[in-house]
């Protein structure tokens, strides 16, 4: 089990390096992040054993990332809408 997860991680690392060499336009970042999230999830589920753990541990493991999304989402809500209202004279 451990070894096959490990091989999957190596394969994904190779893919992410290979994909970075291609120009996918707006998809560059989502693809790179998607692969990173997959790799992270593999580590969390198998190496860190969340797959076999209690629902509480699963909740705790997810909650950190949910809270990050709150930080990212709301802060970017500011940065992305700053330009909506024209500034007179600019």
């Amino acid at each position: 089990m451990c070894v096959s997860v490990f091989l999957a991680l190596l394969v994904f690392t190779a893919i992410t390096v290979w994909v970075a060499g291609l120009d996918l336009g707006p998809l560059n970042t989502p693809v790179a992040l998607g692969i990173a999230v997959t790799k992270g999830t593999l580590v969390v589920l198998f190496f860190m054993g969340v797959r076999w753990n209690t629902p509480l541990t699963k909740t705790v493991a997810i909650s950190g990332f949910v809270w990050l999304l709150i930080l990212f989402g709301i802060t970017m809500g500011d940065y992305l809408t700053r330009g909506w209202l024209g500034v007179p004279g600019r």
């Binding site: 996918l24 560059n28 990173a36 790799k39 054993g49």
Partner: peptide, 27 residues
């Protein structure tokens, strides 16, 4: 086990840092 959890977490951080820092300039 606890030390292992910590070590894996440090690995995960790197898994994100690698594409976000190193791979942007590849294409």
């Amino acid at each position: 086990e606890v030390a292992g959890l910590y070590w894996h977490f440090v690995d995960i951080v790197w898994i994100f840092l690698f594409p976000l820092l190193y791979l942007l300039g590849r294409h």
